[in-house]
């Protein structure tokens, strides 16, 4: 039991390491921005930056949900397929409502509501199987990932589901327009991020997520309703997938079996790069935001230069993920 003595020495190093841990992702982001500026003068242009951020906002919003799930010791692999099936059903519902509601915002709003509702329902299903069914999150969401993917292929009959052109015209501004020149996806991403940060840090729910991810037994013995908190993280994840999709649909106005492919991995990568621990117990939303933006910038920078093939995008992202985790590990063992 005399563990205390050898623990003391870690102290002098600790402050320094904590700093590195907090600053790490920000530092990487700053380096990327500098690299971007030096490679291409267009990098800092308003159009380029809003474009990168708007494209990142889908993954970003999903990744914020994933931060809660992962912090509470869970995992959701189904989000990409879930996004695809939500997009497909939203389009079908809107097309189907045109005869009764006519063309206009009514149909679009009904579509949006459907998207969020569907996300919630999918989250309830994942969460219920995991908490009440006592099946591992990896397995449940691997299963639903296949189910959702297959469902959207079935609904599209192997092809593409397209939104009625006139409705699509009404809906378009939700992706392409904005407020004071800032596109809506970026605004929503920012609002979700701020909300997420506040919930994670300043509410009992956020604290409980970290407690459960850190040690489920301790949480249970501390009278926390572990199952309900877990379930809530999956519902939140589902709803946020819904939000991401309702921003995504107006971009292309269609959904197919290739919609949202690998989004789940990008979201998880963003979370991990941001400093949240994959096995749970510690999560930070702003880190996730930085992580997702880093991933988006890598692709953008590769596109803006001509030395390295942009096809290596995935390789660079992969290297960043592994580096991020290596850094995390380094702090732990030291």
């Amino acid at each position: 039991m005399s563990v205390s003595a050898p623990d003391i020495p870690a102290k002098p190093k600790r402050g320094f390491r904590l700093d590195l841990k907090t600053v790490g992702p920000l530092l990487a982001l700053a380096l990327l921005v500098l690299l971007g500026i030096s490679l291409n003068e267009n990098f800092l242009s308003y159009n380029n930056l809003t474009n990168v951020l708007a494209r990142s906002s889908f993954i970003g919003i999903i990744a914020i949900g994933a931060t809660f799930v992962i912090t509470a010791g869970g995992l959701d692999l189904s989000v990409g397929s879930m996004a695809a099936v939500i997009a497909g059903v939203m389009i079908m519902v809107m097309n189907w409502l045109i005869p009764t509601m006519g063309i206009g915002w009514g149909v679009v709003i009904a579509g949006m509501a459907t998207g969020i509702l569907l996300g919630g329902v999918a989250g309830v299903f994942n969460g219920t199987m995991i908490t009440r069914g006592r099946i591992e999150a990896f397995i449940v969401t691997l299963g639903t990932m296949g189910i959702f993917r297959s469902l959207v292929t079935f609904l599209a009959d192997g092809g593409t589901l397209s939104l009625n052109f006139q409705v699509a015209d009404v809906y378009r501004p939700v992706y392409y327009a904005g407020l004071l020149g800032v596109p809506w996806p970026i605004i929503v991403f920012a609002l979700v991020a701020i909300g997420g940060e506040v919930v994670m840090r300043y509410t009992a729910f956020g604290r409980y997520c970290a407690a459960i991810g850190s040690n489920e037994q301790v949480a249970r013995y501390s009278s926390i309703n572990v199952d309900n908190v877990r379930l809530l993280t999956y519902i939140l994840q589902g709803v946020l997938v819904g939000v991401a999709v309702l921003l995504y649909v107006p971009r292309l106005g269609s959904a197919s079996s290739t919609t949202g492919v690998l989004w789940e991995l990008e979201a998880i990568a963003g979370v991990i790069i941001g400093g949240t621990t994959l096995k749970g117990g510690y999560g930070r939303i702003w880190g996730t935001v930085v992580g997702v933006v880093i991933l988006g910038l890598i692709g953008n920078i590769l596109n803006l230069q001509s030395l390295i093939s942009p096809y290596l995008n995935g390789a660079f992202q992969g290297v960043i993920i592994i580096l991020a985790v290596l850094l995390q590990r380094g702090r732990k063992n030291a």
Partner: peptide, 25 residues
């Protein structure tokens, strides 16, 4: 609990969240 490391305390967290975890309300 008798199992302070396994069931009583969140070992990776500080004193404050541990103290108030049971009574966060």
């Amino acid at each position: 609990t008798k199992d302070r490391k396994g069931k009583g305390l969140l070992l990776n967290m500080g004193l404050r969240p541990n103290l108030t975890l049971l009574t966060l309300d």
